[in-house]
Amino acid sequence: MPHLYVHPNRVYIQFTSPSQAALEALGPVQIGHRKASGVAQSVIDSSVAYGTQLGGALGDWIEADGYGEARYKGFIPPVGPDKWVPTGFSDTDKTAPPVEPHFGDLRPLALTTADECAPPPPAPFSTSPGSAFYQQADAVYQTDLALTKEQRRVGEFWADAGGTATPAGHWLAIATQFLRPRNLAEAVSGYVLTSIGYQDAFIAIWQSKYQYNLIRPETYIRRHIDPTWKPSWPTPQFPEYVSGHSGLSGTSDRTFTAVFGHVGFTDSTKLRRGLEARTFSSFSHASDEAAISRVYGGIHYPMGTSEGLNLGHCVGNAVVSRIHLL
């Protein structure tokens, strides 16, 4: 069996200092285990040299994904009755910039292009009460008016007390529940497959968000249904279509099932936040709940969550079929 050591300084250059220190310590420890098991010093030396070379190539490839250019590139949001505006403010008090408007321009990992899993266009914009778009917004409004205690618990559970990084972080915490009792190789494989899915899902979701720049339910409802209405949770500062929670959860359904199988589980990752554990019959069950939670929170239209799930399933299927781990 070949022995490979990818030098952490060449690949993990963006980690925080504590993480960097842990990674730098991990390599020598693993090399020590190999030496203790009888691997010749010449094999170790050549493996470290090859790993350092490979790490350099990977680092160069990572740096060319377009993020450096996209991160600070300017963006002027388009204007129109159907277009996103900053939420949490009145229409005459717009102060929040959109989050990562060019993330959809990044190079994917498993997808061939950012729009390979693109959703269909949203319902045609209209303010007519009989229109499909109005009904989408009214569904959010009516759901909020009749929100049950259980629906509120669901919304709070998947909102994770706010923050737009929560869907990936929440699902990775679930992955840790499954991977903690396993060995390092299994943990690496599990985290790699799921994390590749998240990278490509975010790219695909953000490509859609900034293609359509669709108005959020909060803004539409306040303009056309009830000027006093506010959602149960703060609306993130980027366009609506499609839902990020839904897309990431749909991807998780596919990658988690590939890694862990068709199993039920109890998500106890939020106990320290004071939220009760929730039990699911499958990863699909959990992803469906995560998606609908965004309607409960008043953050997304039903079409944003359903098409977000579909996009996520497409991304997850692509990752599972194209990424092969030893």
Rank of each mutant, 00 (worst) to 15 (best):
T257H: 04
V140R: 00
H7A: 12
A49I: 15
S195Y: 08
A159G: 09
Y5N: 06
E289V: 08
P129L: 03
F125P: 05
R322D: 13
P120R: 04
I174C: 02
S246L: 11
D115T: 15
H324C: 11
S128W: 01
Y301I: 09
D226A: 01
G74W: 02
F280C: 09
P236I: 00
Y220P: 02
E218Y: 01
G312F: 09
F283I: 10
F202I: 14
R10Y: 02
A118F: 11
L4P: 06
S195D: 07
F157K: 07
D288A: 11
S128A: 15
I13P: 02
Y241R: 01
S189M: 06
Y50V: 12
P122D: 00
Q41A: 14
F125I: 08
P167E: 03
L26H: 11
C117P: 02
P234C: 07
G130P: 10
H33V: 14
R216K: 02
P98N: 06
W158L: 07
E307Q: 15
A57P: 08
D91G: 04
V39N: 13
S249W: 04
S189E: 08
T148C: 12
I62Q: 14
R272A: 11
A25E: 12
A132R: 13
K35G: 06
N213S: 02
P28R: 06
G312T: 13
A201S: 13
G197I: 14
V85Q: 11
A110K: 09
T257Y: 05
R223I: 01
V43H: 12
P2R: 08
K270W: 02
S195L: 14
F265D: 05
D267K: 03
E276F: 02
L4Y: 06
V242M: 08
V192D: 09
P97M: 04
A118R: 10
A123D: 15
P122R: 00
A137L: 13
H170V: 05
G130I: 09
G32L: 09
S131G: 10
V192H: 09
P98K: 05
V242S: 10
Y134C: 07
L58G: 13
G298N: 10
L109Q: 12
I299W: 02
A165E: 10
T16M: 09
L106F: 03
V192Q: 06
L106G: 00
Y67L: 14
I174H: 01
P108V: 00
L172K: 08
I205Y: 04
G197R: 09
E156Y: 07
P234Y: 05
F75G: 00
G298L: 12
Q14V: 08
S249K: 04
V99G: 02
F157V: 07
V154N: 10
S306N: 10
H7L: 07
G163K: 03
F133T: 05
A168R: 08
A173S: 15
A159H: 14
T143K: 11
W84Q: 02
S268V: 07
G308F: 09
N310T: 13
P167D: 04
P86F: 00
I76S: 11
W229K: 00
P77A: 00
V315P: 00
F283H: 06
V79N: 14
R34E: 11
P97F: 03
A291C: 12
I196N: 07
R216D: 00
V319Q: 13
R34I: 06
G51S: 05
A139D: 15
